[in-house]
């Protein structure tokens, strides 16, 4: 029996949700396992770096890498996987745009460490001990990966061939991606393996959205009840659907929550946050600066709202003065 195509999974700065999406293939995973050889998947099976190093360059058919790149270890591993793989797929929102971990780009590394190891209410650390990058024990030196200053999407570190969007990607998209890989009939490099149309296209509440939208206030889902029938944006809750790729089947809206934009923008858009901001703000009804500001105050954290998944991959990438 000829060798089955080799597939690698790896995770970087991520929550593990993308790995779950693999498991969420349910019985389809049997099909995957039948057709490919998973040669590296640290979250699920015991592999070492050296297992990857032993392959010839390009021997692995595809690596699906999820998570943003934040540490020297992640950088090292993805550079290694890049060398060994024919195709690298950014798997999920964090690998594609930095995802939730990318929001750390609003802060300095020091601010984050200080908070995590000293100031966070759940921390007891009177000596203010921090992890050491190098530590000598019994005459030998042990290393910890270094935290970089910037959270990066995968394609700012290595060349990426395809993207599977989502936080996490839907099993359907993942399955389609694997099928495409196995078919050998590969789409053009850089393709995002999801429909290139915004979420409203498949939103069950599309018909309830009015054509005369004019915002007089913005509401937050933690403070107000969302009408389960009507277009969520038209109720004044920021829904990123109009600026976000479809492909998830409007999962959040079906759970009566607004879309937060995890599938990223369409191919025509460089900066998802700027585009939804442009659309939503243009439809505010107020006309004077003061009145406009009063309405916009309903969105107290615009970066966290409009760039929830895409900050690290956005045009500005991070807070620029730190």
């Amino acid at each position: 029996m000829p060798d089955k195509p080799k597939l690698a999974f790896y995770w970087c700065a991520s929550c593990g949700g993308c790995e779950e999406s693999v498991v969420d293939l349910a019985e389809d995973i049997l099909f995957v396992v039948d057709n490919v050889d998973i040669i590296f998947w640290p979250v699920a099976m015991d592999f070492k770096k050296s297992d990857v190093e032993k392959y010839a360059d390009g021997e692995i058919v595809a690596s699906l890498i999820n998570g943003a790149i934040r540490t020297s270890e992640q950088q090292e591993m993805v550079q290694l996987l890049r060398r060994k793989s024919k195709v690298v797929i950014a798997h999920g929102a964090c690998a594609q745009y930095g995802g939730i971990p990318g929001l750390a780009n609003e802060f300095q590394k020091e601010e984050i460490l200080k908070w995590v190891y000293e100031e966070s209410p759940s921390i007891i650390n009177e000596e203010k001990v921090r992890p050491q990058l190098k530590y000598k024990v019994n005459g030998s030196e042990v290393f910890l990966p270094e935290l970089w200053n910037v959270v990066r999407p995968l394609d700012k570190v290595i060349d990426v061939d395809y993207y599977i969007p989502g936080c996490p990607p839907s099993p359907k998209l993942l399955k389609e991606a694997v099928l495409v890989l196995l078919s050998g009939n590969l789409p053009p490099k850089g393709t995002v393996l999801a429909p290139d149309i915004a979420l409203c296209d498949e939103c069950p509440r599309k018909d309830t959205k009015p054509t005369d939208l004019a915002f007089t206030e913005f509401l937050r889902p933690n403070l107000h009840i969302i009408d389960p029938e009507k277009c969520i944006l038209s109720q004044g809750f920021v829904c990123m659907g109009p600026a976000t790729r479809s492909g998830c089947g409007a999962l959040c809206v079906n759970g009566n929550m607004p879309c937060t934009g995890c599938y990223g923008p369409t191919s025509r858009v460089k900066d998802q946050g700027a585009k939804i901001l442009s659309s939503i703000a243009s439809n505010v009804s107020a006309k004077t600066e003061k009145e406009i500001d009063a309405v916009l105050n309903g969105i107290p954290d615009p970066v966290g709202t409009f760039y929830r998944y895409s900050l690290a991959g956005s045009i500005l990438r991070k807070k620029v003065n730190i």
Binding site: A198, D201, K206, T211, L213, A214
Partner: peptide
């Protein structure tokens, strides 16, 4: 047309009512 999701955000922005929403094509 094939790129438009039918989100209707643009419709109220046009002062000349040049933008309309097609209920059949969505």
């Amino acid at each position: 047309e094939e790129e438009c999701s039918g989100c209707k955000s643009c419709v109220p922005l046009c002062p000349y009512t040049a933008i309309s929403y097609d209920e059949v094509k969505k």
